[in-house]
Design a binder for these strands. Structure first.
Lengths: 194, 194
DNA sequence: CGTGGAGTTGAATACGATCAACACCGGTGG
DNA sequence: CCACCGGTGTTGATCGTATTCAACTCCACG
């Protein structure tokens, strides 16, 4: 909870007093490594803010293969917009790749925060625009880049995550097989002695 | 302009009177087919709402190949968030695939609309969440689906666009070559006599 | 007409996927 | 303490899908 408070006070215009008013909307929860946080087809009314640990959103295709949409390490948000905003069931799964502590954030929290603190509206909007920007970038990468380029982009975007996430997961994020990723890494090692 | 007004009144909570107050922030513009609307590296402070015609956002890779991020036919929005919200230069190009009439929408318009009409805030937010949802879907498609599946998804998502957009453009949206798309279509024709 | 872009088709190629085998490590239980 | 096991990562051989390059047709448009 402290992590979330620090995060908010550092990044958003929410003050200490305003935070206290909103606190009742927040709940802390922990998921042991391996827990399913959200299952495809289920519903949920909250966003997860990761205080520590690592969550991951992924889908399963008809062959049972996993495709990772997003990783959420400390200070990241993750949530299912289908449930929260569109009264539909979740289209992806979320699980915990590490023991993870989260703050559950209701739609109500976001609403009230905007009432209590008018500037929070702009902050929240900026967050959404940033999210869109980031996803555009990812789409462009999937359209334009080779496996090797995607991997280099990945380790640049998440330098500290590379060691925490298995290559199986990374590969499923990059849209390649673990075997291919292994070969990409081998080729890079030969090139630059990484 | 009328198209935009109709659209707003149908989809958002903005009333006729409120619209009149905001009108001064809006400008109509037309782009002949083939015009560059925004160039990578440039800046812009507006979103484009397409009243008629068709815009398209795309990037160029280092081999000069085009990769289409988004099509924007009638009643769609398109814009460069890097410029508008993050004071950076555009990372993609936008051009007109048809003679296109747009309404230019400033950040100010969106701000004032939220001031004048409090419910517009929710509408705008929903638009952003919907956008994110849509892009998640696209990312998942690029990760999980074959060329054929992607094409089928495409014609389902944009049934009326298929005939207006050249296969070269569609291929660049799907992340395959025009030749591959041609073969995919041939295979489908054989299968289902489309 | 004739020119150039769009679309199709064929042949050769390349990149990543698949399948299979194996080394390695960490955890578990005998 | 060691044997076993399952999961991870590596490597090799083969396969398949999409790419590349090239030739050709077909229009639309000058």
């Amino acid at each position: 909870m402290q992590v979330f408070k620090d995060y908010l006070q550092q990044h958003s215009p929410i003050t200490e007093e305003q935070f206290q008013l909103l606190r009742k909307e927040l709940k802390v929860k922990t998921y042991p490594k391996g827990t399913m946080v959200l299952r495809e087809g289920g519903t949920t009314q909250v966003f997860w803010f990761v205080c520590s640990g690592l969550l991951r959103a992924y889908t399963l295709d008809n062959q049972g293969k996993e495709h990772t949409l997003q990783f959420a390490p400390e200070n990241w948000w993750i949530g299912d917009r289908n449930s929260i905003y569109f009264h539909e069931s979740a289209v992806f799964n979320i699980d915990a790749l590490e023991d993870t502590e989260v703050v559950l954030i209701t739609k109500n929290f976001l609403e009230e925060a905007q009432t209590i603190c008018p500037d929070f509206r702009k902050y929240n909007e900026l967050l959404l625009h940033n999210n869109i920007r980031h996803m555009q970038c990812r789409i462009n990468q999937l359209l334009a880049a080779t496996a090797e380029e995607r991997y280099l982009d990945f380790i640049q975007l998440y330098p500290n995550l590379t060691l925490r996430i298995s290559q199986i997961m990374i590969a499923s994020y990059l849209g390649i097989t673990p075997e291919s990723l292994s070969r990409v890494r081998k080729a890079l090692a030969k090139k630059h002695s990484y």
